[in-house]
Nucleic acid binder design. Structure first.
Length: 495
RNA sequence: GCCCCCAUCGUCUAGAGGACUAGGACACCACCCUUUCAAGGUGGAGACAGGGGUUCGAAUCCCCUUGGGGGCACCA
């Protein structure tokens, strides 16, 4: 199914930051190109001057690269089919529009936005479909000549046949049929001379020799328009591949930025931008793996894979038809899997920025010995500072209640900590020696391990939940351990 | 309203007419391990939306119903 080399493009518009839906499309494009030895092209669809967001292009490029999706042609890298910004290709669209008019496949429409809006409302009131009423399509020659002579502003609209049907051959859905009478005379060229998506995408995909158009399912309704344009212009169609939608975790509706109610009644925003996942401490390799599984699977039981393995296995026929719910829980699990795979050095380096953001000025070298203890405890990099902060800044002396374990009182706890302090003051400062000494101490005191260890843990880390005790003691160093124990003992004495 | 798409555990999926007592993963529950929390191990609960066909035989093919979703801009 995917043997010949494919030329595919990811064509975002610079109106917002890269979101997971776009990333998924780009990822599939990239996989197909790599799989077939073809090209992955980045094309910027900047034809809406009103919605332009200046730094969105940087964000899109940065995060495509973050995911490892380098393009072969496009901004920065150039290529033989440029320019890759649609705003620099207006001449192509204008020419295509002229050709369509000449062939009787399009016409100039002089209707003002106001009239369109008014007509829309009237039709709605009458219970008719809300589309354009085709006034200018059936305008008299005299009227048309007059408006033309006046130099009235116009748009170019497609002259959709009033009868018959148009068939879209979708690679994963088969034939999709549309009755032409249900289709609209869409705008092809806006009055400012810029093309709409419909015209631009067809012209550029043809000129850039795109072989496969991968895009979201939400484009299916306009696919017949594009098919018509290919036919009208006498061009060969690309393969149409409409990807299943990505649904919100609720399963209702497209994944999009919106407020979500938490079980506890608070509201939080759904994460949808790739940059947000990055900032939340997700690894690019985990994101790649997870996003690849959004609407694609090659096997029922292999779901952790490298980009190379994905390329090897990728086949358009394995793309699902049904929409996929975005599961944050599964992503989190998968991120944990990838975190556990990292070497301590690698993990340490990736954690550094998160430590700094938390106000902890540390180096990767300092982190390396500490990282193995939290590696299987964190699911995102952003959780690291909360587990390691006590190594790098002083802690508040815990409250007495926090220090006292179940079935013990302040007095007993204090005695235990004093004994521990005495033991730790003299023990050889090495993990196994510390463990042996403290275990023996618990036995001597007639305490269960937890009854001794938990107060020590809280005294030296300030946390109820912390990394394993003996390595923590070792890495914290004798001086700080004794000092923190002293403070805890003092607090208990005053309780 | 009109057009279009989709339908296996809560979620992602395996399944391409007989190998299905419907397999795996996340999440969930229990137990084990254990200094907390994790990680890991073992086990458990949990699905073919409904109805008609086709066929010796249907989760798999066809039709209808239902349900869910998407689209109807001088936005992409």
């Amino acid at each position: 199914m995917t043997t010949k080399s494919a030329r595919v493009r990811f064509a975002p518009s610079p109106t917002g930051y890269l979101h997971v839906g776009g990333a998924r499309t780009a990822l599939f494009d990239w996989l197909l190109a790599r799989k077939t030895g073809g090209q992955f092209i980045l094309r910027i669809e900047d034809t809406d001057r009103k919605r332009y967001v200046p730094d969105s292009l940087d964000d899109i490029e940065e995060h495509l690269r973050w995911l490892g999706l380098q393009w072969d042609e496009g901004p920065d890298v150039g290529g033989p089919y440029g320019p890759y910004f649609q705003s620099e290709r207006l001449e192509h669209y204008r020419r295509a529009a002229e050709e369509l008019i000449a062939k009787g496949w399009a016409y100039r429409c002089y209707c003002t936005p106001e009239r369109l809006e008014q007509s829309r409302q009237e039709r709605q009131k009458r219970g008719e479909p809300p589309g354009y009423d085709r006034r200018c399509r059936f305008m008299s020659d005299e009227e048309r000549a007059e408006l033309e002579a006046q130099g009235a502003p116009y748009v170019v609209r497609l002259k959709v046949p009033l009868e018959g049907e148009t068939v879209v051959h979708d690679l994963i859905r088969g034939e999709i049929r549309f009755e032409n009478k249900t289709l609209e005379d869409v705008v092809l060229l806006k009055s400012d001379g810029y093309p709409t998506y419909h015209l631009a995408v067809v012209v550029d995909d043809h000129l850039m020799q795109i072989t496969h158009v991968l895009r979201g399912d939400e484009w299916i309704p306009s696919a017949p328009i594009h098919v018509m344009l290919y036919e009208a212009l006498g061009w060969e169609q690309p393969q149409w591949v409409h990807l299943p939608l990505i649904l919100d975790p609720s399963g209702k509706g497209k994944l999009s930025k919106r407020k979500k109610k938490n079980p506890d009644g608070t509201e939080s925003e759904t994460m949808t931008l790739v940059r947000e996942f990055r900032e939340a401490g997700y690894l690019p390799e985990a994101m790649f793996n997870f996003i690849a599984l959004l609407g694609w699977a090659y096997s029922g039981d292999e779901e952790i894979f490298t980009p190379e393995q994905a390329i090897q296995k990728f086949d358009l026929k394995d793309i699902k038809k049904s929409p996929a719910v975005f599961s944050y829980e599964k992503l989190e699990w998968m991120n944990g899997v990838y975190i556990r795979k990292l070497s301590p050095e690698d993990l340490a380096e990736r954690i550094v920025p998160f430590m700094q953001k938390a106000g902890l000025n540390v180096t990767a070298e300092q982190l390396v010995p500490l990282v193995p203890d939290i590696q299987e405890r964190i699911k995102t990099l952003a959780e690291a500072p909360g587990m390691l902060d006590f190594f790098f800044r002083d802690i508040e002396t815990p409250a007495p209640e926090a220090l006292i374990p179940k079935k013990m009182d302040a007095e007993k706890t204090r005695h235990a900590l004093e004994a521990a302090r005495a033991t730790l003051a003299n023990v050889e400062w090495e993990h196994d020696a510390i463990e042996t000494a403290l275990r023996q101490l618990a036995k001597d005191l007639g305490l269960k391990a937890g009854q001794l260890f938990q107060p020590i843990r809280i005294a030296i880390t300030g946390k109820r939940v912390a990394p394993p005790l003996f390595t923590t003691i070792e890495h914290l160093g004798r001086e700080r351990v004794l000092e923190r124990l002293d403070r805890a003992i003092a607090t208990l004495a005053n309780a």
